[in-house]
Design a protein around this nucleic acid. Structure first.
Ligand SMILES: [Mn+2]
Ligand SMILES: [Mn+2]
Ligand SMILES: [Zn+2]
Ligand SMILES: [Zn+2]
Lengths: 139, 139
DNA sequence: TCAATAATTAGAATGACTCTAATAAATCTC
DNA sequence: GAGATTTATTAGAGTCATTCTAATTATTGA
């Protein structure tokens, strides 16, 4: 079914962002958004594309991840110095991160409540609040 | 005064960590700990050492930062993918980070209260809680 | 003082990411 | 739809922070 518009969901994401629906962007969008919420690195996504028979360069994977992030389709999660994770869940939520394994897992926004927000330095305003619960395997 | 033991404070930090008090480690410890709480990158610290006339290699700066971190004298702050910050303030506290400027500033632990800690995944335990308030300059 | 151990070093290597400038694809105009 | 215009993709080189290697040097403790 829906044989004539196999990419329509992805198309509808790209159009409002002013991004031309190229073969590469459509394919990456499907990998990213058609399997529920996920966290990926550029290297992982490039590997998945290759495995799926999609030819796309690393440069394009990086370009696309950044463009999607600017368009609000993705969000970047900073947990490891030296490696960027991209998150398909753009709703307010936080993260568990296990350094040993690299596992990154969501914490729903309503499971963490922050109180007593401090005043921000002069001339600045809060852009985002990141809460990372760093885990270790128990001994 | 105290002319005969100019490095005693730093010495006392290294000894319990089982780190030999070498010229390089003592000098870096002074740069790190004798000017109040601070956040530094390896590159910054290496530059300060050079400016102070201390000859020390980048490799040693990295080694020392990691050894001090393992010894609990420093703590690593992850705010930027691609650059590691080291924090001389090891007490419980959180951070403001302004990506535009790279400014990293402390928030005292008691100014942020976290409630409703979620259950951790099986086999893991919370090692640390990082709260980062990401700032932007206001428009 | 000497042997044993640990630390430092220069420079090469790595890994993630970005840039360049040439090619190709998508869109716009008619 | 053809051609012009704009935007995207690409291979490969370049960058930057960080780590590794293996040779030299310093510290320790007998
Ligand atoms: Mn890492
Ligand atoms: Mn950055
Ligand atoms: Zn997430
Ligand atoms: Zn701090």
């Amino acid at each position: 079914m829906n044989h004539t518009r196999p990419y329509s969901a992805s198309l509808d994401r790209l159009r409002p962002a002013g991004l031309r629906p190229t073969r590469q962007r459509l394919a990456l969008a499907r990998l990213l958004f058609e399997t529920g919420d996920r966290h990926v690195t550029a290297e992982q996504l490039h590997g998945e594309a290759r495995d799926a028979g999609i030819r796309v360069s690393v440069a394009t994977v990086y370009n696309t991840l950044h463009q999607f992030t600017e368009a609000g389709l993705l969000r970047e999660v900073v947990v490891d110095p030296g490696r960027a994770y991209f998150d398909t869940n753009t709703s307010e939520h936080h993260h568990f991160y296990t350094e040993e394994t690299g596992a990154l897992e969501d914490i729903p926004g309503d499971r963490v409540v922050l109180a007593l927000m401090p005043n921000t330095p002069l001339g600045t305003v809060i852009d985002r609040v990141d809460v990372i619960l760093r885990l270790k395997t128990d001994s």
